[in-house]
Amino acid sequence: MRKITAGLFISIDGVVEDPQDWHFPYFNEEMGEAVDAQLGSADTLLLGRKTYDSFAGAWPDREKAGAEDADFAKKLGDARKIVVSNQDLDFTWRNSEQLKGDLIEAVTALKNEPSTSSIGMSGSISVVRPLLAAGLLDELHLMVHPIAVRKGTRLFEDADTPLPLKLISSKTFTTGVVHLVYRRDDNPPAGDYETAKTDLPQSTD
């Protein structure tokens, strides 16, 4: 079964909206390598329409320009790009297509394709949320930036039940950004104060 990984730039207060307004001062070689490992290594990209439009409006021109990021731009261009949208779309970026049918059913079929390469996601909150809730997202890569944006859409919406996650790995960059990789935790720890207080420091008096 194919693995789906999603990468997100996120502020310390949980904001994921408009990262171009606050993210770039923290971008360095360490983050570039992490993004390339998560997104650039995938042969298939699964994107929401807004994220796709942003990518399609920038990366083809960067590939043509042949600058420092041209190799990464070519990887994105060569990848199969599947766009999730309720609107009929026309594509000019090569290897682009629209997801057909129900999101969960279609993504389940993608995961079952005979391929060893992962499916990469970037941004696309409207797609990440339902896939995470359905247990179809294998890795959630959060680049936590040391800034409180204090406005904008946050990754997790209000809900009646919590969503437990399990930490797979963590790495701190020299910029203060922390790269956290999670997966959904289907067997979260349980307990209450009565069980927790046994781990409090005990008085020796």
Rank of each mutant, 00 (worst) to 15 (best):
I147W: 10
D71Y: 00
I10V: 13
A58S: 13
S96F: 05
E97D: 06
Q20R: 15
K197V: 04
D78T: 02
T51L: 07
D78A: 07
V15A: 15
M121S: 07
P60V: 00
V16Y: 00
L167D: 03
L165G: 00
L165M: 12
R62F: 12
A67R: 09
K3M: 13
F156A: 14
A190F: 05
A6G: 05
D205S: 09
S96M: 01
A148K: 14
F9E: 09
W22M: 12
D78H: 01
H145K: 07
F9G: 14
A196N: 06
S203D: 09
N86I: 07
D138I: 09
D36C: 08
A73H: 05
I12V: 15
Y52N: 07
A109T: 11
L142E: 11
S118F: 07
K171Q: 09
G7Q: 10
A133C: 01
D18I: 15
F9D: 12
L103H: 04
D199L: 09
R2A: 10
G176F: 08
A106L: 08
A37M: 11
S96R: 00
F91R: 04
A190W: 05
L140Y: 08
V127T: 12
V178A: 07
D158Y: 14
S117A: 13
K74I: 01
D61L: 11
Q98D: 07
L76V: 09
S124A: 15
T161Q: 13
G66Y: 00
K50M: 07
P146C: 15
S115Y: 05
F156K: 10
V128L: 13
D43R: 14
A133G: 06
E194T: 08
G48F: 06
A6L: 13
H23C: 14
G57C: 04
E29W: 12
E194C: 05
G152W: 00
T116S: 07
A65H: 02
E68S: 04
D102P: 10
S54Y: 03
K151L: 06
S203F: 03
G176D: 05
D71S: 07
L200K: 07
A109C: 02
D61T: 03
A190I: 04
V35A: 14
A79H: 04
Q98T: 11
D53K: 10
I104S: 06
L110M: 11
N28V: 14
P188W: 10
L142S: 04
A42T: 07
A109R: 11
E194G: 14
N112F: 01
R129G: 12
E30Q: 15
T174S: 12
D102T: 00
N28C: 13
A56M: 02
P25F: 13
P188Q: 00
M31A: 06
T198H: 09
L46R: 12
A109E: 02
G152N: 11
L200N: 03
S115F: 01
A70L: 06
P25S: 12
E17F: 00
S54L: 05
H23D: 11
A79E: 03
